[in-house]
């Protein structure tokens, strides 16, 4: 029997991608944009477990690559590993603690950092460029922006489960 949460998490991807590609570019700061998809991925990885987070990351990555025209496989790997990492925080007895606003934002920051770093690796940027600066531009800034949005969202997170 498929859990309703599984179906919801799949369907939720499409409105999120719609917002990600139409509204989110309007709040870009120097081409740095928050990744709403990673926030939902982290949420489901924590609430549904590590394997589910990993598989969901894979599916989200596949759909993202195929719809936006990115290099097929690059976002898949990045989001799969991000979902796997976020799944570490899915222990039964600590789950609710991890969903508290700042804890959740920190997990989003970690998952987003991993995702952006792997994506940057696949963008085949010239090695002449300073790796440290690239890490800050490609991974740290987008991850910080994403976790700030997650923090804002979790402030309004109701005590009961959303989905």
């Amino acid at each position: 029997m498929i859990k309703p949460a599984y179906i919801v998490s799949f369907i939720l991807f499409f409105p999120l991608l719609l917002i990600q590609t139409t509204i989110v570019p309007l709040i870009a700061i120097d081409n740095i944009i928050p990744d709403l998809i990673i926030i939902i991925l982290v949420y489901y990885a924590i609430t549904q477990g590590q394997i589910y987070g990993t598989v969901l990351g894979f599916i989200y990555g596949f759909l993202f690559d195929i719809i936006t025209g990115s290099l097929l496989g690059s976002t898949m790997i990045a989001k799969t590993i991000a979902g796997f990492t976020a799944g570490y925080f899915s222990s039964e007895n600590k789950r609710d603690q991890y969903l508290i606003s700042y804890n959740f934002a920190l997990i989003v920051l970690l998952a987003s950092l991993i995702e952006s770093t792997i994506s940057a690796f696949f963008s085949s940027v010239s090695l002449n460029t300073n790796i440290f600066i690239l890490f800050i531009q490609y991974a740290l800034f987008p991850a910080l922006y994403t976790s700030s949005i997650a923090l804002l969202g979790m402030i309004f997170y109701p005590k009961r489960r959303l989905f």
């Binding site: 590609t21 081409n31 990115s70 994506s119 940057a120 531009q137 490609y138």
Partner: peptide
Amino acid sequence: IISKSLSKSQGTVT
């Protein structure tokens, strides 16, 4: 342009 995928390295538009 109906959607943009603005990433630092792989910018695409639909």
